Simulated scan of single mutants.
Amino acid sequence: MDSIDIFLYVADILVIVGIILAVVMPLIKSFDDPKSLLKSALAIVVLAALFFIAYSISDGEVLPKFAKEPFNLTEGMSKFVGGSLIMTYVMTIVALAGIVITEITKAIK
């Protein structure tokens, strides 16, 4: 084991610690203001509902060449990827619309 392997393991550990802190610290801070937990829960519910809608309208069709080795793509996996793509498209459009609306309202004021 040389130093590169050690640094890769350290980097993995630091990323995991960073992810844990990014989730836990806002939760600890939000216990001071329980209403912020309600807003966060509402946002998660809205995102879950949006994903359910996107998953429902996505197509699960798999071309024969992707159903074989090395991909082994199933209908469920294809539907999940399609739902994720549709959700990404919708969220991108919502974000861009929000940016445009914010800039227009700032220009009017």
Rank of each mutant, 00 (worst) to 15 (best):
D5G: 09
F52L: 14
I53S: 08
V90L: 11
E61W: 09
V90P: 04
G98N: 14
K68W: 04
I86G: 02
S30I: 07
I28Y: 13
I101S: 03
A43Q: 10
L73D: 02
E69I: 03
D32I: 12
L8E: 09
V24Y: 09
F31H: 07
K68M: 12
S84A: 14
T105G: 00
G83T: 08
A67T: 05
D59A: 07
S40K: 05
L50N: 05
D5R: 12
K29E: 11
A41L: 14
I99A: 13
V15R: 12
S58T: 08
T102E: 13
S30Y: 11
D2M: 04
V100Y: 09
G76V: 12
F71D: 01
I16C: 13
I101W: 05
G82R: 01
D5K: 11
I4P: 00
L47R: 04
S58N: 07
A67S: 15
Y55S: 06
V46Y: 01
E103L: 10
S30K: 09
E61Q: 03
S78D: 01
A22R: 10
P26L: 06
S3M: 15
F66T: 10
A107H: 03
I86W: 05
L38W: 07
I108N: 05
L37Y: 10
M25R: 07
Y89S: 12
L37S: 03
G60K: 04
A97D: 02
G76H: 10
D32E: 13
L85K: 08
V10K: 06
F71V: 13
M1F: 11
Y55Q: 08
A48E: 02
Y9I: 09
L8S: 10
G18L: 08
